[in-house]
Nucleic acid binder design. Structure first.
Lengths: 261, 261
DNA sequence: CCATGTAGAATGGTCTTACCATTTAGGTTG
DNA sequence: CAACCTAAATGGTAAGACCATTCTACATGG
């Protein structure tokens, strides 16, 4: 549980963030371990000598960072979570969206990463992993040929394949970066897979790539990947998005400090 | 400003996050552009038909994501920000810290990225950029030889150098990834630079690398980088960290719904 | 006329109190 | 013993008040 001296009261103009930082530091420092429960909001309110609203803002920050999970009811509260790659990936995707990064830049990055992963996957991937990769590509190919699968299912299979691929490096950073890139790509992936010609070709190319990886032939594997990105670039050039924006104005003039409605 | 129909009331068990998502969508969608101001908390409270606390939690999330900045006083409020790479980098660093990623994995990743950047920097970097890189490395070398500079200054110069290097790819994703990796590395970089032997060697190696990049010789440049990471791995093996963790317990039993103190 | 100061409004930040919904634990009753 | 019910703990929401900060606009005095 929580020792007295871990947290100190605070009164700055940004108490919530300050408190969030203190708790975060306690988590990163190992003073609170995953699975453990934070004191209830009403207790934290006393520990930090502050109002409950401030505590809730702090917990909201931690929740958003993926550091804690909260449950309602008796025995509820904020539990320390094992940080998942998905959070930082989302952050990355958000950045890509808001900064209007050139899709071609993302493709270039993804291609570069794929080459690195290929080498590492061949060098470090176990026989089981390699055969799994091959089997998954064949499953995807079958799913594409038999038209029974939905588009979402196919895209999902493709993503899984990439994750498995990245996991073969036995370096979690590559797995994370792969998830992040895919999140940034997600809008495009759906559009691409709608094209029948593209998806039949793509899965075939995946099969070839997986086979060469299983055969530990980095040159041929990377050659297939190179071809894949050439096609990808062509297709992406055909997909253009446009967005709209509107602004306006309307105000009221309330008398009290309370809400205006 | 903000049109009426952008936001819809909400009443779920997680109203704050729902509201944050709505506003975030409006931002990413272009309905609200950077520099523009959100309605005041008391107005939002009416638009969403909810309490002010919920609104504040939502804004806290957006603030934490780096999407808005808030100011106090008249004409204060929440202003839409241009998302900076620093936010996603911090998210990445947080993940590295909390997941106890093997430093060797981070080094491996960084080395891979460096090779890619080298090729791109040589291919795309302008003559000006290349000469700037060389000059900066020489400035760093001078700063290391003349013992007048503090350790922090040297580390900072080294980081700047890496950012300049990444910028030469003319692909902002590499710049971002470089910042992220450096944040994850920061604790180690300081320790490494404390070693006189390491820093004299490191800056000399940087000079050589920069020179080869300026000379557009990727083979030699990557050879220097390879050597650098060999040394780096050796040094990092000598740096070991240990952390402590303590737990405890103490509770009170208040009677009312209010705070316990 | 201009500079200076002052009052007020707008706004974020905080605190308090209250109530609701959910969940668990424990007791009660058939 | 099982089913049910009640109470306590806890997060989620709401409303109202007050403070500190900041800007605007008006008044005041030179």
């Amino acid at each position: 549980m929580i020792t007295d001296k871990i947290f100190v009261p605070v009164k700055a103009g940004r108490a919530g963030e300050e408190i969030a930082l203190q708790i975060q530091a306690a988590i990163l420092n190992g003073d609170i371990v995953p699975g453990e429960k934070l004191p209830s909001e009403r207790e934290l309110q006393c520990l930090f000598k502050t109002g409950r609203g401030v505590i809730r803002e702090a917990l909201q920050v931690l929740r958003q960072k993926g550091l804690i999970e909260t449950y309602k009811g008796s025995k509820g509260g904020a539990y320390i979570k094992n940080l998942e790659v998905v959070n930082v990936s989302e952050s990355f995707a958000l950045f890509l969206k808001q900064s209007h990064t050139d899709p071609m830049h993302l493709i270039e990055f993804r291609e570069s990463i794929d080459y690195i992963i290929t080498d590492l996957a061949i060098a470090r991937g176990t026989a089981d992993e390699k055969s799994l990769l091959v089997r998954k590509t064949e499953a995807l190919a079958k799913a594409v040929k038999g038209n029974g699968s939905s588009l979402e299912t196919l895209v999902e299979l493709d993503k899984d394949l990439n994750i498995i691929f990245a996991k073969m490096t036995h370096n979690s950073i590559f797995e994370w970066i792969m998830r992040a890139v895919q999140l940034g790509f997600s809008s495009m992936d759906n559009a691409l897979y709608e094209d029948l010609e593209y998806r039949t070709y793509a899965v075939e190319n995946w099969r070839n790539t997986a086979r060469e990886i299983a055969a530990s032939d980095p040159i041929k594997a990377k050659s297939y990947i190179s071809y894949h990105y050439m096609i990808l670039r062509k297709k992406v050039l055909l997909i253009t998005n446009s967005s709209s924006l509107q602004v306006n104005d309307n105000h009221e003039q309330p008398d009290t400090d309370s809400a205006c409605c």
